[in-house]
Simulated assay, not measured.
Amino acid sequence: MGRAAGVIPTPRVSGSTGPVPADPPAVGRVTLVGGGPGDPGLLTRRALDRLAEADVVVADRLVPHAVLRDLRPGVRVVDVSKVPRGAFVPQEQINQVLVTEARAGHRVVRLKGGDPFVFGRGMEEMLACRAAGVPVEVVPGVTSAVAVPEMAGVPVTHRGLTQGFTVLAAHLPPDDPGSTVDWAGVARSGTTIVLLMAVQTLPEVTAALLRHGMDPATAAVSVENGGTDRQRVLRGRLDDIAAVAAAHHLCAPAVTVIGAVAAFADVTQLADASARPGRDL
């Protein structure tokens, strides 16, 4: 007996006991993009390409905000700023935003200051995306740990002075139970010391380095708002850079460099002088 007209049999897959499920909804992607140290001109070409394609941009406080004004019409920007001792979006919430937006089929750019994997919690976001089955890509950025000193005329290494540099997140003072830094080892390392997130803890950090035997006369420099038209450079020594920073009301974001190379700091940028990013030093 023939089939009734207009009735199409339900397709089956060998071994299945029911109809083939509908295709899953399209999944977008997440790209973790390093925004560099502040100057929009220091974004990579791939970073600009991913921003040009984005449907949603999830942005940190320290990204080069000028690039957000150049996004194509209709792009949603989600602000997930983490302000020191201020507004704070939990990392778990950021992870969820990335996954939810990608599962909705969107091309998501997670725009972060500096490099995503240098104190940027980028690996946590990558793991969250992978666990959720969301494709994720990383676009490296120029890290402020190296670029900001450079823009103040300070190389983190220099032949005859230092054979390496140590980059530390100093948001916790040395005596904090959560600090895992061997400050005695750092003081003895003979490398340039680069401190990020150290505006509030600079007095404790410098005191610890002095206590562990570093020369009080070691050159030091703090660079505020590196790579922007508000860049400011404060120069001193290990034993007084914290006092210099306090006297000039140093504000975050700032990078502090301790070591012989800090003496190279461009004298035209000292104290309240401003430096435009990209000019010759």
Rank of each mutant, 00 (worst) to 15 (best):
V156W: 03
R61L: 15
R237E: 05
A102P: 10
T157I: 15
P116Q: 00
E92W: 05
H171L: 13
V89T: 15
L32R: 01
V257M: 04
A104S: 14
A54K: 05
Q269R: 14
L43C: 02
I94L: 08
F88Q: 15
M214H: 04
D70C: 10
L43W: 02
R85L: 14
P174S: 09
V134R: 05
V56T: 11
L168Y: 05
A243W: 00
A271I: 02
T17Y: 14
F117N: 08
S144Y: 03
G86Q: 09
H248I: 00
G6A: 12
R72S: 08
R76K: 11
A5Q: 13
G160L: 12
A66T: 07
V56G: 11
Q269N: 07
K82Y: 11
F119G: 06
V146I: 14
A59H: 10
R230T: 14
A217V: 05
D176Y: 04
L210V: 02
D182W: 10
E101N: 04
S179Y: 07
V139I: 02
R188G: 13
A254P: 04
V109K: 11
A265Y: 05
G236A: 02
V27C: 09
R69M: 10
A66P: 08
G153M: 04
Q93L: 11
L48C: 08
V20S: 06
R46A: 03
A220H: 01
V134S: 03
V167P: 07
Q200S: 14
P116R: 04
I241E: 06
S274K: 15
S14G: 13
